[in-house]
Amino acid sequence: MAVQNARDVYTRRLEGVSIWVVESKYIHASNPDEAEAFFDPAADKVYRHPTFYEVPDSIKHM
């Protein structure tokens, strides 16, 4: 049933080629109360994105 529901909702615009269904009781999630400690430290680390290099003109398709 879940697989069919997912197919009807999420694949209407060619978004999917495969559907995986997991019962919610088997999902381990991060605690929303710890969201700041989990995710904020990445906010000021722009160097994690490789955007500080100049791509030479001769390199196409980047």
Partner: peptide, 9 residues
């Protein structure tokens, strides 16, 4: 503190 909280964890 946000970072240290994760380090301690």
């Amino acid at each position: 503190l946000k970072e240290a909280a994760y380090h301690l964890k």
